[in-house]
Design a protein around this nucleic acid. Structure first.
Lengths: 222, 222
DNA sequence: GCTTGCGGTGTACGCTTGTACACAAATTGT
DNA sequence: ACAATTTGTGTACAAGCGTACACCGCAAGC
């Protein structure tokens, strides 16, 4: 017997705050879903989002002042996702043998898993509202920095001066985002093209990493 | 005496087709101008553009079926601009001594000169309407291909297999676009930051080019 | 246990938007 | 010289938008 009043149909009384968070999540998800259908975030209307979320337009205001604010929360979530990605990357083996290829495939899998979020940042990173753009760029910068720090901790590319390491990570992230954009507007189940892109991605990273170390050596010895 | 009727005030009879092209150009320019004010193209309305161009909304239809079609024309113009850039680059000296640095500064100057157009592609390359996005990507791909072809004609990086050269050019273009994006949302007259970015840009290209040749050598000799 | 506060709803407003139709002027082809 | 085409205008309408206000039911706090 359920201890709670034992009402015939009372699946979950759900404390009010939880209910609130739930519809809030629905609003966020609605925005992402709409973007997944090809719409750009900037062109989304408050009413549209509310409709997709299954609530009346006014309910929107109980959670966000306007669409931009919702966008900022989305960016925040993306930040969390990126941090999670780094955390997963960190506990990968340091086995040097095609660790690059492994990283790439893990990353691409991650992108497909969090499709909508990556679609969001790749769409709004350059082009939406100024505030959103800056917020996203901020997150990306943080990601880059943490990546550089991880490299340092692992003793990878230890001979590179910090500034250069930072730049290399910047290039890596740029390449990662470009790759994400590419896989995202690829129709699903195009395994062949996908494999090709993945291989390209690996080669690009190799070029960057190889170039960075060797160029540094060449300059240092001159 | 002007042969044409000799009316008192008749500055230019201007054939009708010219007048048409003129307002058409005004519409295109209006769209770019609005984007220069921070608006994203996707969020521009037909009426908004017409208003900015100083014509009544209905006049829009005499030139474009809808805003997307106007966007496509803009993309076309961008394509011309890019081709012009390549043509200018082609007639630069082949003097190897810091030709990279010179190319970069020429390019950045070109970006600032065609500010609005680059802002447009950098905004809509990922994120606007699907049709526009594809059109832009198409142009960028063409640009990349022509660049690779130029490299070949000049005998630069002749030892790279075509596929690899193509990839390198892809990375260069990606870096160029990223750099353009960066200088574009930099407030004007930030000469210091701008110089720093420019130098970064040079270094990135060096890494790519150096890495590509050397990585290729290393693989070829193994 | 009653009041209070909060999440959600319904109605309503003023505004902008895309588009349709009829029309004016004027350049063009014959 | 005349008729036809073409560019730009004015008016109009239905639809969608963001937002304000009054309201309702119910969980929460005294």
């Amino acid at each position: 017997m359920p201890p709670r009043k034992a009402a015939s149909k009372d699946p979950e009384p759900l404390p009010r705050s939880a209910r609130k968070d739930l519809t809030r999540a629905r609003l966020l998800q609605a925005a992402l879903t709409l973007m997944g259908e090809g719409r750009s975030f900037t062109s989304l209307g408050l009413r549209e989002i509310a409709r997709e979320a299954g609530v009346v337009p006014n309910a929107f205001y109980r959670h966000f002042r306007n669409t931009d604010e919702l966008g900022l929360v989305l960016v925040e979530e993306v930040g969390i996702t990126l941090r999670r990605l780094l955390r997963e990357a960190r506990k990968m083996d340091v086995a040097p043998s095609d660790m690059l290829r492994r990283s790439v495939s893990v990353y691409l899998e991650y992108v497909k898993l969090n499709r909508l979020q990556f679609l969001f940042i790749s769409s709004e990173r350059s082009g939406g509202s100024r505030i959103l753009r800056l917020a996203i760029r901020n997150d990306v910068t943080h990601f880059t920095n943490e990546m550089a720090q991880d490299f340092r901790m692992r003793g990878l590319y230890a001979h590179l001066p910090t500034a250069r390491l930072q730049m290399v990570c910047g290039m890596i992230v740029m390449t990662m985002l470009a790759a994400a954009t590419d896989v995202l507007d690829l129709p699903p189940d195009q395994t062949l093209l996908e494999a090709e892109m993945s291989e390209n991605f690996v080669q690009q990273l190799k070029i960057i990493l190889f170039g960075a170390t060797r160029l540094n050596d060449a300059l240092g010895s001159s």
